[in-house]
Amino acid sequence: MLVQEIYDNLKEKFPEAVLEFIGTATGDPSTVVDAGQIYNICKYLRDQDGLEFDYLALLSGMDYKDKFGTVYHLYSLKYKHRFVIKTYLPKEDPSLPSVERIWKTANWHEREAYDMFGIKFENHPNMIRILCPYDWEGYPLRKDYVGQETYHGVRIPV
């Protein structure tokens, strides 16, 4: 199925939640959806006959300087089509529902997004840092990140 058809299908099902279709000259087109509805949309995408996106290839956190976001790259092993969903999140206290219950693989990806961007995923079973130490301060991949000067008394070289 083409990306456009999937978008139309989704727009029909969730008229309010699906916000925008970004098609670019180069690269992958993507669909922006409402962050609060992400769980329902993902569940629909996985379970709906004809779509069956059973494979979450990648979940990335994003910092667009003026806003945060998450990006979901989906595959369907059966139909071999792909789809990209995006959400935008506010600068202050970004949070959105977790999709961990839909694709287990999201568990670690969401922890990583939390670790790197401070995006909180609601209903996540274990929302703790994953790559940085558990008591690290700040979110390193934010564009305005300033690193700690010392960590447990050890100076961090810049």
């Binding site: 670019t24 000259a25 180069t26 690269g27 992958d28 993507s30 290839a57 990648l58 790259h73 990209v84």
Partner: peptide
């Protein structure tokens, strides 16, 4: 200098 855009290549 790729143009503005995004791609997932695997």
């Amino acid at each position: 200098r790729p143009p503005k855009g995004e791609i997932y290549c695997s």
